[in-house]
Design a binder for these strands. Structure first.
Ligand SMILES: [Zn+2]
Length: 253
DNA sequence: GTTCTAGAAC
DNA sequence: GTTCTAGAAC
């Protein structure tokens, strides 16, 4: 590929100003056709806060923009996302995607694979710093970054996702387990493994055992509670979020 | 990925 | 009776 072009989609494209407001876009670029070009970044669900008054004129200005996510995705749009859009499974859920054509994590090997992961890490760290400093309403969110070991869409995508998992889009056990079991491979783990083993290839047996993780009983990611069904889990997650928000507010007093 | 629904769970 | 899951079809 051309050496000059940007190898990675700028994460600044993910935090984008629109209509005088700062919107967060969660973005997935599905390359269903293996031969297709990776498209320009497309917008996902807008989770801007209409009542956020603080908006700087430009992402490049000295004063960083205020990005408010307190409205949450669950209240963002009652209609299902249009084609080209995607869903977020938490208050903040973004993807960092290499421009290099790579289907999935298990295709990576050697120094080439390691370098792709390191460049993704560099970009994701940058994004994470922005998220932490530019989401004043939810500074208490914690984040993880990682990959689905067996992705449902090709073109490698690194999830940067807050750990509240409060989202109307979270609708089944598979969704939940894909982010909260070993099916979700954290970036740091992937980097360690490729350094050690020189490959991230999966045997069919390994693949099967990871897929079995998706069928595990529900378990809270923040405490030892094991909700009996998904609605109970979602209610429980809301309580964690409210509790964290309250604790943070009180710590500011 | 989504929608639909049988039947399990409550 | 109502809620919920999970598999099939798309
Ligand atoms: Zn919990």
């Amino acid at each position: 590929m051309a050496g000059r072009g940007k190898k990675f989609i700028d994460a600044v494209d993910v935090v984008r100003k629109q209509d005088g407001r700062i919107d967060l876009f969660n973005t997935i670029l599905a390359r269903k056709d293996p031969e297709a070009q990776i498209p320009a970044l497309v917008s996902g669900a807008s989770i801007s806060s209409p009542r956020s008054p603080k908006v700087s004129p430009s992402l490049e200005s000295n004063a960083p923009p205020s990005v408010s996510v307190d409205q949450g995705l669950s209240r963002s749009s009652p209609s299902p996302p249009a084609e080209g859009e995607t869903v977020a499974f938490a208050k903040v859920h973004m993807l960092v995607i290499p421009r290099t054509k790579v289907d999935k994590l298990s295709d990576l090997s050697g120094d080439t694979g390691l370098n792709i992961l390191l460049e993704l890490q560099e970009r994701a760290d940058w994004l994470l710093n922005r998220l932490k400093t530019e989401t004043p309403d939810v500074p208490f969110l914690e984040y993880k970054m990682g990959f689905h070991i067996v992705p449902s869409l090709v073109q490698l995508h690194l999830h940067v996702i807050s750990q509240d998992f409060c989202s109307a889009s979270l609708k089944n056990k598979k969704h939940w387990n894909s982010f909260t079991t070993s099916f979700f491979v954290e970036l740091s783990m992937a980097i360690e493994k490729i350094k050690r083993d020189k490959t991230l290839a999966l045997s069919s047996g390994e693949r099967k055992s990871f897929e079995d993780e998706l069928k595990r009983p529900l378990e809270c990611n923040q405490c030892s509670v094991r909700p009996s069904n998904l609605p109970a889990l979602k209610k429980h997650l809301e309580q964690h979020f409210d509790q964290r928000a309250k604790a943070w507010r009180e710590s500011q007093k």
